[in-house]
Protein backbone atom coordinates (compact mmCIF):
# COMPACT_ATOMS: atom_id res chain seq x y z
CA UNK A 1 0.00 0.00 0.00
CA UNK A 2 1.20 3.48 -0.72
CA UNK A 3 1.38 5.60 2.37
CA UNK A 4 -0.26 8.95 1.75
CA UNK A 5 1.46 11.45 4.00
CA UNK A 6 -0.19 14.46 2.43
CA UNK A 7 -3.65 14.31 3.94
CA UNK A 8 -4.68 13.84 7.50
CA UNK A 9 -7.89 11.85 7.63
CA UNK A 10 -10.62 12.60 10.09
CA UNK A 11 -11.26 9.86 12.63
CA UNK A 12 -14.62 8.11 12.68
CA UNK A 13 -15.93 6.68 15.90
CA UNK A 14 -18.03 3.55 16.03
CA UNK A 15 -18.83 0.72 18.41
CA UNK A 16 -17.64 -2.77 17.67
CA UNK A 17 -18.75 -5.50 20.05
CA UNK A 18 -19.34 -2.94 22.75
CA UNK A 19 -15.94 -1.24 22.42
CA UNK A 20 -15.47 2.29 21.12
CA UNK A 21 -13.22 2.24 18.05
CA UNK A 22 -11.71 5.18 16.17
CA UNK A 23 -10.46 4.63 12.66
CA UNK A 24 -9.64 7.01 9.81
CA UNK A 25 -12.53 8.08 7.59
CA UNK A 26 -12.76 5.88 4.52
CA UNK A 27 -11.83 2.74 6.46
CA UNK A 28 -14.11 -0.26 6.23
CA UNK A 29 -15.77 -2.07 9.09
CA UNK A 30 -13.23 -4.82 8.42
CA UNK A 31 -10.41 -2.34 9.05
CA UNK A 32 -12.09 -1.39 12.31
CA UNK A 33 -12.39 -5.04 13.32
CA UNK A 34 -8.76 -5.66 12.53
CA UNK A 35 -7.74 -2.60 14.49
CA UNK A 36 -9.42 -4.30 17.46
CA UNK A 37 -7.77 -7.64 16.72
CA UNK A 38 -11.15 -9.19 16.03
CA UNK A 39 -10.59 -12.01 13.62
CA UNK A 40 -12.91 -11.73 10.64
CA UNK A 41 -12.92 -14.44 7.99
CA UNK A 42 -12.55 -13.18 4.41
CA UNK A 43 -12.38 -15.01 1.10
CA UNK A 44 -13.03 -12.58 -1.75
CA UNK A 45 -11.36 -9.62 -0.08
CA UNK A 46 -7.74 -8.74 -0.77
CA UNK A 47 -5.92 -5.56 0.19
CA UNK A 48 -4.59 -5.09 -3.34
CA UNK A 49 -7.91 -5.60 -5.18
CA UNK A 50 -11.19 -3.68 -5.46
CA UNK A 51 -13.73 -5.26 -3.09
CA UNK A 52 -16.39 -7.31 -4.87
CA UNK A 53 -18.10 -8.34 -1.63
CA UNK A 54 -19.37 -11.51 -3.20
CA UNK A 55 -18.53 -14.33 -0.80
CA UNK A 56 -20.34 -12.88 2.23
CA UNK A 57 -18.23 -14.72 4.80
CA UNK A 58 -17.14 -11.43 6.37
CA UNK A 59 -20.67 -10.26 7.24
CA UNK A 60 -21.35 -8.46 10.49
CA UNK A 61 -24.51 -7.22 12.13
CA UNK A 62 -25.01 -3.47 11.86
CA UNK A 63 -27.72 -2.06 14.12
CA UNK A 64 -30.46 -0.46 12.07
CA UNK A 65 -29.74 -2.48 8.93
CA UNK A 66 -32.31 -5.08 7.90
CA UNK A 67 -29.71 -7.52 6.61
CA UNK A 68 -26.15 -8.23 7.63
CA UNK A 69 -23.52 -6.17 5.83
CA UNK A 70 -20.20 -7.19 4.26
CA UNK A 71 -17.54 -5.74 6.54
CA UNK A 72 -14.92 -5.77 3.77
CA UNK A 73 -16.80 -3.27 1.65
CA UNK A 74 -18.87 -1.18 4.04
CA UNK A 75 -17.23 2.13 4.93
CA UNK A 76 -17.43 3.15 8.58
CA UNK A 77 -19.75 5.93 9.67
CA UNK A 78 -19.90 7.81 12.94
CA UNK A 79 -22.11 6.14 15.50
CA UNK A 80 -22.32 2.75 13.82
CA UNK A 81 -22.97 -0.09 16.23
CA UNK A 82 -21.51 -3.33 14.95
CA UNK A 83 -21.72 -6.88 16.28
CA UNK A 84 -19.26 -9.37 14.91
CA UNK A 85 -20.17 -12.44 16.90
CA UNK A 86 -23.94 -12.46 17.22
CA UNK A 87 -25.94 -15.59 16.56
CA UNK A 88 -27.00 -14.23 13.14
CA UNK A 89 -23.42 -13.50 12.18
CA UNK A 90 -22.18 -16.91 13.30
CA UNK A 91 -25.02 -18.60 11.42
CA UNK A 92 -24.33 -16.81 8.15
CA UNK A 93 -20.59 -17.37 8.33
CA UNK A 94 -21.10 -21.02 9.08
CA UNK A 95 -23.57 -21.39 6.21
CA UNK A 96 -21.37 -19.59 3.68
CA UNK A 97 -18.46 -21.84 4.59
CA UNK A 98 -20.67 -24.90 4.63
CA UNK A 99 -22.28 -24.14 1.27
CA UNK A 100 -18.83 -23.67 -0.23
CA UNK A 101 -17.43 -26.75 1.45
CA UNK A 102 -20.31 -28.84 0.13
CA UNK A 103 -19.83 -27.71 -3.46
CA UNK A 104 -16.14 -26.85 -3.87
CA UNK A 105 -12.92 -28.66 -2.96
CA UNK A 106 -11.50 -26.46 -0.18
CA UNK A 107 -8.71 -28.84 0.76
CA UNK A 108 -5.98 -26.47 -0.48
CA UNK A 109 -7.54 -23.27 0.78
CA UNK A 110 -5.16 -22.94 3.68
CA UNK A 111 -5.13 -23.27 7.43
CA UNK A 112 -7.35 -20.27 8.06
CA UNK A 113 -10.22 -21.81 6.16
CA UNK A 114 -9.74 -25.12 7.99
CA UNK A 115 -9.82 -23.32 11.30
CA UNK A 116 -12.93 -21.28 10.43
CA UNK A 117 -14.72 -24.42 9.35
CA UNK A 118 -14.04 -25.88 12.79
CA UNK A 119 -14.80 -22.71 14.64
CA UNK A 120 -18.19 -22.19 12.99
CA UNK A 121 -19.14 -25.87 13.04
CA UNK A 122 -19.35 -26.60 9.32
CA UNK A 123 -20.98 -29.92 8.37
CA UNK A 124 -20.95 -30.18 4.59
CA UNK A 125 -22.09 -33.77 4.71
CA UNK A 126 -25.64 -32.89 5.67
CA UNK A 127 -26.53 -32.03 2.06
CA UNK A 128 -25.95 -35.59 0.96
CA UNK A 129 -23.07 -37.26 -0.85
CA UNK A 130 -21.34 -35.11 -3.47
CA UNK A 131 -22.46 -35.64 -7.06
CA UNK A 132 -20.06 -37.20 -9.54
CA UNK A 133 -17.62 -34.73 -11.14
CA UNK A 134 -18.69 -33.13 -14.42
CA UNK A 135 -17.02 -34.35 -17.59
CA UNK A 136 -14.37 -32.09 -19.16
CA UNK A 137 -16.05 -29.10 -20.78
CA UNK A 138 -19.53 -29.93 -19.49
CA UNK A 139 -19.75 -27.01 -17.10
CA UNK A 140 -18.34 -24.68 -19.74
CA UNK A 141 -21.23 -25.58 -22.05
CA UNK A 142 -24.08 -24.96 -19.60
CA UNK A 143 -26.80 -22.63 -20.77
CA UNK A 144 -28.16 -19.82 -18.58
CA UNK A 145 -31.72 -20.41 -17.44
CA UNK A 146 -31.64 -24.17 -17.88
CA UNK A 147 -30.46 -26.95 -15.64
CA UNK A 148 -31.13 -30.58 -15.07
CA UNK A 149 -33.79 -31.01 -12.42
CA UNK A 150 -32.16 -32.71 -9.43
CA UNK A 151 -33.64 -35.60 -7.47
CA UNK A 152 -31.75 -34.57 -4.34
CA UNK A 153 -29.94 -37.87 -3.92
CA UNK A 154 -26.59 -36.12 -4.30
CA UNK A 155 -25.35 -32.60 -3.65
CA UNK A 156 -24.33 -30.66 -6.77
CA UNK A 157 -20.69 -29.59 -6.86
CA UNK A 158 -18.35 -27.80 -9.24
CA UNK A 159 -16.00 -30.80 -9.43
CA UNK A 160 -14.43 -31.23 -12.87
CA UNK A 161 -11.11 -32.23 -14.44
CA UNK A 162 -8.10 -29.92 -14.12
CA UNK A 163 -7.46 -27.74 -17.20
CA UNK A 164 -3.85 -28.30 -18.26
CA UNK A 165 -3.28 -26.50 -21.52
CA UNK A 166 0.04 -24.70 -21.15
CA UNK A 167 3.49 -25.16 -19.58
CA UNK A 168 3.22 -22.60 -16.81
CA UNK A 169 0.06 -22.98 -14.80
CA UNK A 170 -3.02 -25.16 -14.37
CA UNK A 171 -6.64 -24.24 -13.71
CA UNK A 172 -8.34 -26.58 -11.28
CA UNK A 173 -11.83 -25.10 -11.23
CA UNK A 174 -13.18 -27.82 -8.98
CA UNK A 175 -11.52 -25.67 -6.31
CA UNK A 176 -12.94 -22.37 -7.51
CA UNK A 177 -15.13 -20.43 -5.07
CA UNK A 178 -15.92 -17.65 -7.61
CA UNK A 179 -14.23 -14.94 -5.58
CA UNK A 180 -13.53 -12.88 -8.75
CA UNK A 181 -9.98 -12.18 -7.60
CA UNK A 182 -8.28 -13.65 -10.66
CA UNK A 183 -10.59 -11.70 -12.97
CA UNK A 184 -9.81 -8.49 -11.15
CA UNK A 185 -6.07 -9.19 -11.22
CA UNK A 186 -6.18 -9.96 -14.93
CA UNK A 187 -8.28 -6.84 -15.53
CA UNK A 188 -8.11 -3.29 -14.33
CA UNK A 189 -6.72 -4.05 -10.86
CA UNK A 190 -3.36 -5.16 -12.19
CA UNK A 191 -2.72 -6.69 -15.54
CA UNK A 192 -5.20 -5.01 -17.92
CA UNK A 193 -5.15 -8.08 -20.14
CA UNK A 194 -8.74 -9.26 -19.70
CA UNK A 195 -7.96 -12.85 -20.70
CA UNK A 196 -10.49 -14.32 -18.29
CA UNK A 197 -13.95 -13.32 -17.16
CA UNK A 198 -16.96 -14.64 -15.31
CA UNK A 199 -19.39 -16.42 -17.64
CA UNK A 200 -22.71 -18.19 -17.19
CA UNK A 201 -25.18 -17.60 -14.41
CA UNK A 202 -26.07 -18.85 -10.96
CA UNK A 203 -24.47 -22.11 -9.88
CA UNK A 204 -23.14 -22.49 -13.43
CA UNK A 205 -21.01 -19.35 -13.28
CA UNK A 206 -17.40 -20.06 -14.12
CA UNK A 207 -14.13 -18.32 -14.82
CA UNK A 208 -13.28 -18.73 -18.46
CA UNK A 209 -11.71 -17.40 -21.60
CA UNK A 210 -13.99 -16.52 -24.54
CA UNK A 211 -15.74 -19.66 -25.75
CA UNK A 212 -13.61 -21.53 -23.19
CA UNK A 213 -10.69 -21.58 -25.65
CA UNK A 214 -7.42 -22.90 -24.28
CA UNK A 215 -5.12 -20.36 -22.65
CA UNK A 216 -2.58 -20.30 -25.50
CA UNK A 217 -5.37 -19.16 -27.84
CA UNK A 218 -6.55 -16.50 -25.40
CA UNK A 219 -5.15 -13.10 -24.54
CA UNK A 220 -3.25 -14.53 -21.55
CA UNK A 221 0.32 -13.25 -21.19
CA UNK A 222 1.19 -15.65 -18.33
CA UNK A 223 1.93 -12.98 -15.80
CA UNK A 224 0.59 -15.36 -13.17
CA UNK A 225 -1.08 -12.55 -11.25
CA UNK A 226 -4.26 -14.59 -11.15
CA UNK A 227 -2.33 -17.38 -9.43
CA UNK A 228 -0.91 -14.88 -7.00
CA UNK A 229 -4.36 -13.88 -5.76
CA UNK A 230 -6.19 -17.22 -5.94
CA UNK A 231 -7.07 -18.21 -2.36
CA UNK A 232 -8.02 -21.84 -2.94
CA UNK A 233 -5.35 -23.46 -5.06
CA UNK A 234 -7.62 -23.44 -8.09
CA UNK A 235 -4.87 -21.68 -10.00
CA UNK A 236 -1.37 -22.91 -9.45
CA UNK A 237 1.96 -23.25 -11.19
CA UNK A 238 2.63 -26.42 -13.13
CA UNK A 239 5.61 -27.03 -10.84
CA UNK A 240 3.39 -27.03 -7.76
CA UNK A 241 0.68 -29.05 -9.48
CA UNK A 242 3.11 -31.74 -10.58
CA UNK A 243 4.73 -32.02 -7.18
CA UNK A 244 1.34 -32.34 -5.54
CA UNK A 245 0.22 -34.96 -8.06
CA UNK A 246 3.40 -36.90 -7.43
CA UNK A 247 2.84 -36.70 -3.67
CA UNK A 248 6.05 -34.68 -3.31
CA UNK A 249 4.58 -31.38 -2.24
CA UNK A 250 6.16 -30.58 1.10
CA UNK A 251 5.18 -27.23 2.58
CA UNK A 252 6.90 -28.13 5.85
CA UNK A 253 10.21 -27.98 4.06
CA UNK A 254 9.42 -24.69 2.37
CA UNK A 255 11.64 -21.65 2.91
CA UNK A 256 10.99 -18.23 1.47
CA UNK A 257 13.84 -16.05 0.26
CA UNK A 258 13.25 -12.45 -0.68
CA UNK A 259 15.23 -10.98 -3.53
CA UNK A 260 14.86 -8.45 -6.31
CA UNK A 261 14.02 -9.48 -9.84
CA UNK A 262 17.04 -9.17 -12.09
CA UNK A 263 15.26 -9.15 -15.43
CA UNK A 264 14.65 -5.42 -15.71
CA UNK A 265 15.05 -2.17 -13.84
CA UNK A 266 11.62 -1.87 -12.26
CA UNK A 267 12.81 -3.43 -9.03
CA UNK A 268 10.08 -5.91 -8.19
CA UNK A 269 10.51 -7.75 -4.93
CA UNK A 270 10.44 -11.51 -5.41
CA UNK A 271 9.79 -14.15 -2.80
CA UNK A 272 11.34 -17.44 -3.87
CA UNK A 273 9.50 -20.38 -2.35
CA UNK A 274 11.93 -23.25 -2.11
CA UNK A 275 11.28 -26.88 -1.24
CA UNK A 276 14.06 -29.45 -1.23
CA UNK A 277 16.41 -27.03 -2.89
CA UNK A 278 14.05 -26.37 -5.79
CA UNK A 279 12.19 -23.14 -6.44
CA UNK A 280 8.53 -24.17 -6.55
CA UNK A 281 6.80 -20.80 -6.73
CA UNK A 282 7.59 -17.13 -7.00
CA UNK A 283 5.40 -14.48 -5.41
CA UNK A 284 5.68 -10.84 -4.44
CA UNK A 285 4.49 -9.22 -1.20
CA UNK A 286 1.11 -7.51 -1.57
CA UNK A 287 2.32 -4.56 0.48
CA UNK A 288 5.29 -3.89 -1.77
CA UNK A 289 5.00 -0.38 -3.17
CA UNK A 290 6.18 -1.35 -6.66
CA UNK A 291 4.36 -4.61 -7.28
CA UNK A 292 1.35 -4.60 -4.94
CA UNK A 293 1.88 -8.32 -5.16
CA UNK A 294 1.75 -8.50 -8.94
CA UNK A 295 4.54 -9.61 -11.30
CA UNK A 296 5.13 -10.37 -14.97
CA UNK A 297 5.88 -13.65 -16.69
CA UNK A 298 9.63 -13.23 -16.24
CA UNK A 299 9.61 -12.63 -12.53
CA UNK A 300 6.88 -15.20 -11.88
CA UNK A 301 8.00 -18.06 -14.06
CA UNK A 302 11.50 -17.22 -15.31
CA UNK A 303 13.38 -19.00 -12.55
CA UNK A 304 14.42 -22.16 -14.31
CA UNK A 305 17.88 -20.81 -15.22
CA UNK A 306 18.65 -20.29 -11.53
CA UNK A 307 18.33 -24.02 -11.03
CA UNK A 308 20.20 -25.12 -14.16
CA UNK A 309 23.26 -25.99 -12.17
CA UNK A 310 26.14 -27.75 -13.90
CA UNK A 311 25.86 -31.51 -13.83
CA UNK A 312 27.11 -32.98 -10.58
CA UNK A 313 27.21 -29.79 -8.53
Amino acid sequence: MTVDLGTIRRLVELTVDGEQVRVPEGSTILDACRAQDIETPTLCYAPNLTPVNACRVCVVELEGARTLVPSCARPVEDGMVVHTDSERVRHSRKMVLELLDSSVDLSQSGEDVDRWKDQYGVDAGRYGPPAAPAAAGERDARHAGHHEIPDGSTAATVAQPVKEDNDLYVRDYGRCIMCYKCVEACGTDAQNTFAIAVAGRGFDTRITTEFAVELPDSACVYCGNCIGVCPTGALKSVSEHELREAGQWDPDDETVTTTICSFCGVGCNLELHVQHNQIVNVTSPTDHSVTHGHLCIKGRFGFQHVQNLPEGS
Partner: peptide, 8 residues
Protein backbone atom coordinates in the same frame (compact mmCIF):
# COMPACT_ATOMS: atom_id res chain seq x y z
CA UNK B 1 -31.82 -20.59 -12.75
CA UNK B 2 -32.17 -16.87 -12.22
CA UNK B 3 -29.59 -16.30 -9.47
CA UNK B 4 -26.85 -14.16 -10.98
CA UNK B 5 -24.31 -16.30 -9.15
CA UNK B 6 -22.39 -13.51 -7.49
CA UNK B 7 -22.88 -14.33 -3.84
CA UNK B 8 -22.55 -17.66 -2.08
Amino acid sequence: DESCGQCV
